[in-house]
């Protein structure tokens, strides 16, 4: 889940208009960019889609870390293609966000200043090649849990971006699982790397869904607006139910001694992640927060002359065209 803990903004709009808007959503209509929408809906969406977009581009970094060290030419191509897809997802999502009246540059500024967040998961380091497997399998797997329902979200551009993104995410998850398979069936050293990657990424993956939000006011409003489709706990449970058998198939052990199948709820009981750690990571105290944000800021700052050069050329061309007419 690339958007965590999205607070809903309140609206001071006309109650009658709000009620009509809600009725449209309840009828399953899609809201499109030029149509009227409550200010709170617009702002909440900017926050959510923006955070999602930021997660995609910051998410390039932990995997990008291994592109130059990928162990075969084929793995290198697959990883490059995957990380490139993430940049593409960022692009769709920033574009979707722009339809709400905010520019991509403004969103970048908010990312760089820390005013907007990205998913906590990308503040964890990628230490071995097995992490490429674990991220594809677990992180993209968790993202899919959240994004598949979001294909039905009420805001048209967001829903359509999600349709494209989901197609690519399932390829990402499969490539991750394929790396895990190779390693789990490989040499003892490879299997150890695979188990270690699972150990390190299991709880951070569970954190991706955010803390339990059953009682949250924000969650209720966002669900009414169909910006959020399921609760965090529902999605986390679904993720665990699907992932545990996959780990068993790999012959790897999920690092949770309390993990048990519960016949009554037809799902696994499992341990909660360490929420103190989660909030520390959100506050900037994760293992890689400074590096990730630092890398994004550096890319932006170093690229300033490049962007300015292109703009200056475009201006000159426009002037030349006008002069020629």
């Amino acid at each position: 889940m690339y958007a965590q803990m999205i607070k809903s903004e309140s609206s001071n709009d006309d109650p009658q208009a709000l009620a009509e808007f809600q009725a449209r959503i309840d009828r399953g209509e899609r809201i499109e960019p030029k149509e009227w929408m409550p200010e709170g809906y617009r702002k909440t969406l900017i926050r959510q889609i923006g955070q999602h977009a930021h997660s995609e581009i910051v998410g390039q970094l932990p995997e990008g870390n291994w592109i130059t060290r990928a162990p075969t030419l084929e793995r290198k191509q697959i990883l490059l293609a995957k990380v490139q897809d993430e940049a593409g997802h960022g692009l769709y999502l920033y574009s979707a966000c722009e339809t709400l009246g905010v520019t991509r540059d403004e969103l970048f500024e908010k990312l760089h200043s820390g005013a907007m967040k990205y998913s906590s998961i990308f503040n964890y380091p990628t230490l071995t090649w097995a992490d490429m497997g674990a991220i594809g399998w677990l992180v993209d797997g968790a993202a899919i849990m959240n994004q598949v329902p979001l294909q039905r979200t009420s805001y048209g551009p967001y829903a359509r971006a999600m349709v494209r993104i989901c197609k690519e995410e399932s390829f990402h998850q499969r490539q991750g699982y394929s790396i895990m398979m190779k390693m789990a069936q490989g040499t003892p050293a490879q299997k150890e790397m695979a188990q270690d990657a699972l150990n390190r990424f299991w709880y951070p993956s569970l954190m991706m869904f955010g803390p339990s939000d059953a009682e949250s006011v924000h969650s209720t409003q966002n669900m009414a607006w169909k910006i959020k489709i399921n609760t965090n706990d529902e999605l986390r449970q679904r993720f665990v139910n699907e992932t545990v058998p996959q780990a068993e198939y790999l012959g790897l052990t999920v690092p949770d001694e309390h993990l048990r199948w519960n016949d009554d709820k037809q799902g696994y009981d499992f341990s909660e992640p360490d929420w103190d750690e989660f909030f520390e990571v959100l506050k900037g105290n994760g293992p890689c927060n400074e590096e990730r944000l630092g890398a994004r800021r550096k890319a932006w700052d170093d690229g300033q002359w490049f962007r300015e050069g292109l703009s200056a050329y475009a201006d000159k061309q426009a002037t030349r065209r006008t002069a020629a007419e």
Binding site: I57, Q60, I67, L80, G303
Partner: peptide, 19 residues
């Protein structure tokens, strides 16, 4: 060229370099 992935000066450029 792949060293640029994630560090490009603009998102479009990042995608083009990876490509």
């Amino acid at each position: 060229t792949s060293e640029w992935c994630g560090h490009g000066p603009a998102l479009e450029e990042d995608i083009a370099l990876a490509n």
